[in-house]
Design a protein around this nucleic acid. Structure first.
Lengths: 223, 223
DNA sequence: CCGCCCGTATGATTAGAATCATACGGAAGG
DNA sequence: CCTTCCGTATGATTCTAATCATACGGGCGG
């Protein structure tokens, strides 16, 4: 009887993982032993995951929804350190004893919770998982550095073109998100993005075909 | 004779490493075997480190100066993916075969060059170094995510306060860089930063004492 | 010792994005 | 089927930070 239940559970989790991996490739390398210890966690908007100073018992990844890591200054003003709409967050908590910020679900969200010790053990013992984790972190660093450079640009058009060049292949990007979300990622109001895209199209700098945005050739040097 | 030279070399490198480590704590965990294979590299302004498509033979850390990772779109416009003024850059190249961008020294710079295979070997065999590397990457991710949030803020004052809260301890930061450099990190013109600091001081929101910048208490709730 | 460069600092002007307002259409839900 | 909500889209206005200009002082090299 128990065996049957366990089988059903395994099957359920198998299905689950296939779906998760397609959204987050890093999860493909989570070893079986750690998968079995992962727990789905549903949160309502406003629910708190952990508080600053609290001891760390788990690491999390966002399946859907949004989690915000925040701090309050002594005047009570809230400062958002990080917004996560998918993937791991607070990766540095793996090497910490206590949290350095608060975490709250900004909307109805689903997370996956990995017990800290099990995660650390998996990293220590499974070389494949460890390599995947280092690769994940390195990619994240690369992506974030490019995003910082982009956000340092002062014009909306420059940010859009930087995005196409740095996130796309050969100046072409297939958008996987809404334009409002894209605007937020670019640090622009959605109105500014709509206007900029329109202008860039009119000036024949880019070409938009549904969700496919491409930088056009402008100057064809005589060669 | 060779032994003596080797000894002198070791002494020289030892001195070197102590200085390097104080600037970049991550280097403290580089194992001896890898240290011996590290080579200092001096570059003039404009000199190229590697080209897009080139195969990867080494990883680098910036000792001083500035390195820029760039790409050119097909119209020749240069896009800066990353500027590094200290520390490792292009960490993701550890897991790549070929570079995905160009790298050029933006000014006269000194780097440290680690042969790729030796670096990988050290990561695979030295658990302490590996942990330090993962910690380094995780911290970098944390810092960059906070910086992205900060750059997404639209007002100069908000960025300054966010910086004090996220990079400082208890709302207080000891600046280690010039204000011009700080302005660049905040994505502001230096003029805008000077004005904002002045205004925030006048409004008694912050207090500046040399390089020490602190958020002041404003509302003392009756408690 | 003098001149140059750079960081600091402030004023005037301007460009450009945020904000507020309004509208439309499609999807989801009652 | 109708209502509601959200993403898309555009116009008008406001506001802030970029830009240009100028000035001052300290450090460094000739």
């Amino acid at each position: 009887m128990i065996r049957i239940i366990r089988k059903a559970l395994c099957w359920y989790l198998y299905m689950d993982w296939q779906a998760l991996i397609s959204g987050q490739p890093t999860l493909a390398h989570v070893p079986e032993s750690l998968r079995q210890r992962a727990e789905p966690w549903d949160l309502e908007a406003g629910e708190q995951l952990f508080r600053i100073g609290g001891s760390i018992h788990a690491v999390f990844t966002v399946i859907n929804g949004e989690v915000r890591l925040t701090r309050r200054d002594r005047n009570g003003t809230e400062v958002v350190l990080q917004r996560s709409r998918g993937g791991f967050f607070a990766e540095a908590s793996l090497n910490s004893k206590a949290y350095h910020c608060d975490a709250v679900a900004a909307e109805k969200s689903t997370l996956l919770r990995f017990p800290l010790q099990a995660f650390r053990l998996a990293l220590a013992e499974d070389a494949g998982f460890r390599d995947a984790w280092m690769t994940h972190l390195a990619r994240e660093v690369r992506k974030l550095r490019a995003q910082c450079e982009r956000l340092s640009l002062h014009s909306a058009a420059e940010r859009v073109l930087h995005y196409l060049e740095s996130e796309g292949s050969d100046g072409s990007v297939a958008l996987t998100q809404t334009r409002k979300a894209w605007a937020a990622e670019l640090g622009l109001s959605h109105e500014a993005l709509y206007r900029t895209l329109k202008k860039l199209q009119e000036d024949a700098v880019i070409q938009i075909d549904g969700n496919e945005v491409t930088v056009r050739d402008r100057f064809r040097p005589n060669c």
